[in-house]
Computed example of a mutant assay.
Amino acid sequence: MTLPPWFDPAQVILSVDVTAMLAKGVHPLQAVRDTLDACAPGSIVELRSTFEPAPLLEVFRGLGMEVWCEGGPGAFHTCIRKSG
């Protein structure tokens, strides 16, 4: 896995298992968005899922966030960094 150059583990403020949230009937979009809205620029939310969370990626890109996603069948790692 090649992490993006802006990734800093010290800036990760939340790590989310998207697949587990969805299995409980909870969509992660609002929780991730609320977390990023309340944090300082440079903060990162990590997502783990069994699929590429393409709709989430597009939403956060549209909000001006830096987004990175890598993975393959059954295991994806996504990082969303608050810009600013």
Score class of each variant (00 low, 15 high):
72 G>E: 12
45 V>L: 04
35 T>K: 14
42 G>A: 09
48 R>F: 06
36 L>A: 08
43 S>D: 12
30 Q>K: 12
6 W>P: 13
43 S>Y: 13
10 A>W: 01
72 G>F: 09
60 F>H: 05
1 M>P: 06
74 G>Y: 03
50 T>P: 00
15 S>N: 06
51 F>R: 05
34 D>Y: 07
58 E>W: 06
28 P>L: 06
45 V>R: 02
55 P>R: 04
4 P>A: 12
27 H>C: 01
52 E>T: 01
64 G>H: 08
80 I>M: 13
23 A>M: 09
20 A>Y: 02
37 D>L: 08
39 C>F: 03
57 L>M: 15
9 P>K: 10
32 V>S: 06
38 A>S: 15
14 L>P: 11
46 E>S: 09
68 W>R: 08
76 F>L: 01
10 A>N: 14
29 L>Q: 14
35 T>F: 02
35 T>H: 00
79 C>W: 15
74 G>I: 05
2 T>C: 00
38 A>L: 06
28 P>A: 03
11 Q>Y: 02
7 F>D: 02
59 V>D: 13
30 Q>Y: 03
55 P>D: 05
5 P>Q: 10
20 A>M: 11
18 V>K: 01
69 C>N: 15
39 C>P: 00
17 D>P: 03
36 L>G: 07
39 C>Q: 12
3 L>S: 05
48 R>D: 07
24 K>W: 00
51 F>W: 02
28 P>V: 08
22 L>S: 00
61 R>H: 08
38 A>W: 03
14 L>M: 15
34 D>S: 14
59 V>G: 04
1 M>I: 07
1 M>H: 07
30 Q>G: 00
27 H>I: 03
49 S>E: 01
40 A>N: 10
51 F>G: 00
45 V>Y: 06
82 K>E: 12
71 G>I: 03
12 V>H: 10
56 L>A: 09
25 G>T: 11
76 F>H: 04
36 L>D: 09
19 T>E: 12
60 F>N: 07
51 F>N: 00
84 G>M: 04
68 W>E: 10
59 V>L: 07
7 F>V: 09
37 D>K: 10
78 T>W: 06
45 V>N: 08
83 S>Q: 14
49 S>K: 00
18 V>C: 10
17 D>I: 01
26 V>P: 00
47 L>D: 08
29 L>K: 14
78 T>V: 15
